[in-house]
Simulated scan of single mutants.
Amino acid sequence: MKLKKILFILCSLVCVNTFSQILSSHLDKQTLALGEVNHFVIKIDNLNNQPVTAAAKNELLPFHFEEVKDSIGTQPNSYERKIEFAVYEEGKFTIPVLEFKVGDKILKTIPYEIDVINTAQKGDQINDIMKNKEVKLGAKDYWELYKWYILAALGVIAFIVALIMYLKWGRKSKASPVVATNQTLKELDSLKKKKYIEEGNYRSFYVELIDISRKFITKQYHLPADVLLTDDLVHLMKKNNTISLENEKVVEEVFLRGDLVKFAKTFPDQQTMENDFADIREFVKRSSKDLEFENLRKDV
């Protein structure tokens, strides 16, 4: 009877050892020099295809341990993790108990204490392996060393020069009197092609003609013609003296007639519309002379 009990216990132990997971760990050295690489291995056997869950790569050891390499090998029946690490501070450090989950079971390693020492002694002489050699550099060598700095500096200089040229000449050319004049003449040609005059559509004709003229005066003479009423604009032109008397008269007559047409107080014929169109067109062409005279007056 006793023999049967002994055999039963032995069989149970064998079964437990056969089917339960076995975790083992090994640390190469427990005394290290500063920066010396050490090896730490964790192994789990008898997995029986069960998954192993642990800390991510390079995150298993505490922050004092600088992990150099962290490799994980898995087989259907085994798990092995090899870690190479170094410590760059003197003192005693501990690798704590580490947990590995196998299926629903938690396995733990034993803790390890590591003593990190500085092997360099005060007063030790440090000798170079080889003597320093003087190397003479030529123009090509200096170019290879500094070419990106030189190219970057040239690029910055080119950008600054281009920006200055744009600010000095580019913007002025776009806002020059000639450009404004040509643009307005094109708009007047487009208005002519709509045949408002031939069709007797005097209201649309004067609305667009005065709108083009107001924008031109605003841009060419820098007067707020786009927001002022006709009477206020005429008063400002006479006070400002920038526009010649001939051009003032054209603007005043056409704008006043346009206001009357807008409120249905007058009904101009085709010839009147033709004359007003021609007068505004000539006014636009003559505007550059007004500006030349104004510049001469300022210089004096």
Rank of each mutant, 00 (worst) to 15 (best):
S78D: 12
K57W: 03
D226F: 03
N38C: 11
K131C: 01
L209Y: 04
Y196K: 02
A139G: 06
E208D: 09
V116T: 04
I106K: 09
I160Y: 09
R297D: 13
V179C: 10
D45C: 02
D259A: 07
H222P: 05
F63D: 14
K289T: 14
N240W: 07
D124M: 10
I9V: 14
F19Y: 13
A139P: 10
A54C: 09
V227N: 03
V14A: 10
P224S: 06
E36L: 01
E144V: 06
S25R: 03
Q30Y: 13
E89T: 13
Q21L: 03
K131I: 06
K43E: 11
W148E: 14
Q125H: 08
V37Q: 11
Y221W: 06
N118F: 04
K249E: 10
S288C: 08
Q50K: 14
I129Y: 06
K186Q: 13
N46D: 12
L233D: 00
R203S: 08
W143A: 00
C15P: 01
K298S: 10
A54L: 11
E253S: 08
N49R: 15
K147W: 00
W148Y: 15
V16G: 01
G155K: 10
V207N: 02
D259Y: 05
V250S: 03
V135L: 13
F8K: 12
T242C: 09
E199T: 10
L260D: 08
M1R: 13
F93Q: 07
N201I: 00
L209R: 00
D259Q: 08
Y166S: 05
K29W: 01
D124Q: 13
E144G: 10
D231W: 04
L256G: 05
K298N: 12
F277Q: 09
N58F: 14
V284Y: 09
V300L: 14
R81T: 01
R281L: 05
L145R: 01
V207K: 01
F19A: 10
I6C: 10
N127Y: 14
F293I: 15
N38A: 11
V261A: 04
S244E: 02
F216E: 01
H64M: 12
D45H: 11
T184F: 04
I117L: 13
D115R: 07
L185W: 05
Y202R: 06
L296C: 05
S190C: 09
L236G: 00
N241A: 11
S25L: 02
V161L: 14
Y221P: 02
I243S: 03
N247T: 07
L145I: 15
N17K: 05
Y112I: 04
I164A: 10
N132E: 12
E292W: 08
P111C: 00
I42W: 02
